[in-house]
């Protein structure tokens, strides 16, 4: 292999020289290229309906199928729940009984007689506080575990056990500790959302390429600079995966927690409606919860995709 390669290189070299001499010797005049003007078909100015349909088409393609699905579900539900023996109300009866809740989410008529929109906002506020705390503490703890082998050995087993505890199991303890329902609910959100944030952040930080670490070493970045300039951006895709799972879990937990702690949230509304047998109200509330959960998930995912625009591509 090695000997032939010398020969090849030398031969190539010799050929290269020969070619060079030849090239210098012969100067061939090429016929001058004549420029031709080719007339291209003019782009037609798009008419307004054409533009509109080009914009509408993808919208329709994405909106029509789920609408059909929803219509079919409602139809099936209507048929199934219409019988006199049925224990659940059909869609038409829900519309009759809970029309005010559906069409007027933000009415206010006394402290317990308020629209579902307000209740959702109260629940969202609790989630916002609990989740923000979980995000900050989770990223910091995750960074610690990802960065230090000893922190991982010490903390990881504990976290792996604690994270399997169901959110509501924390509630009695937190009620005992805080002696108030509001901070207890927030604590439950916090403790629910923090585990996926910690674990994903730690994985993201363990996966920071050695090259980036070397760059930081050559530049002598200190711990704080390294955290903000290398660690967080590099681990951002992982961190946002954790945050997205976390926000979903905290929305699951808040409804359950509010059922037990009372107050004005959407969870308590469902419990209250159950106690006074307003099944239609419960179903409307479920739809609200589902839509808000979906929006929360998309919101965090959207922020994530904007923030990690550069990181995902190598």
């Amino acid at each position: 292999m090695s000997i032939t390669s010398i020969e090849t290189i030398e031969r190539n070299n010799g050929m290269g020289q020969a070619a060079l001499k030849e090239a210098q010797a012969k100067v061939v005049a090429l016929p001058a290229a004549t420029a031709q003007v080719v007339s291209l078909p003019q782009a037609e100015a798009k008419s307004l309906p054409a533009l509109l349909s080009a914009w509408l088409k993808p919208v329709l393609q994405n909106v029509v199928p789920p609408l059909i699905t929803v219509a079919l579900i409602l139809l099936f539900w209507q048929i199934a729940a219409s019988g006199p023996q049925s224990s659940l109300p059909p869609p038409t009866r829900i519309w009759e009984e809970a029309k005010d809740l559906i069409v007027e989410p933000f009415y206010w008529a006394g402290s317990q007689d308020i629209g579902l929109g307000w209740r959702i906002l109260v629940s969202l506020q609790r989630v916002a506080i609990g989740f923000s705390l979980a995000a900050v503490v989770g990223v910091l703890l995750g960074a610690l575990i990802g960065q230090s082998v000893w922190a991982m050995r010490g903390l990881d087993p504990v976290f792996q056990v604690l994270r399997t505890v169901p959110p509501l199991a924390w509630l009695p303890l937190s009620l005992a500790a805080f002696r108030d329902s509001q901070p207890s609910a927030i604590f439950v959100i916090f403790i629910t959302a923090i585990w996926p944030v910690i674990i994903n952040t730690a994985v993201g930080i363990r996966n920071i390429p050695q090259d980036y670490r070397n760059v930081a070493k050559v530049l002598r970045l200190n711990q704080i600079e390294f955290f903000f300039k290398i660690m967080v951006p590099s681990a951002a895709p992982y961190i946002f995966t954790g945050l997205r799972i976390g926000v979903g879990l905290s929305w699951l937990a808040i409804v359950a927690a509010e059922m037990l702690t009372g107050g004005v949230g959407i969870g308590f509304f469902i419990w209250d409606a159950w106690n006074s047998s307003r099944l239609s109200d419960i179903i409307v509330a479920l739809v609200y919860i589902g839509v808000v959960g979906f929006v929360l998930d998309r919101l965090v995912a959207g922020i994530g995709s904007v923030v990690t625009r550069g990181t995902a591509q190598g």
């Binding site: 390429p209 090259d211 760059v215 050559v218 530049l219 951006p233 590099s234 625009r309 550069g310």
Partner: peptide, 18 residues
């Protein structure tokens, strides 16, 4: 390591988010 001995890495090692 320090900036008095700057390194040009084989695979450029630019930070992709900057």
């Amino acid at each position: 390591p320090g900036p008095d001995r700057a390194v040009v890495f084989q695979n450029h090692s630019l930070l992709p988010w900057l």
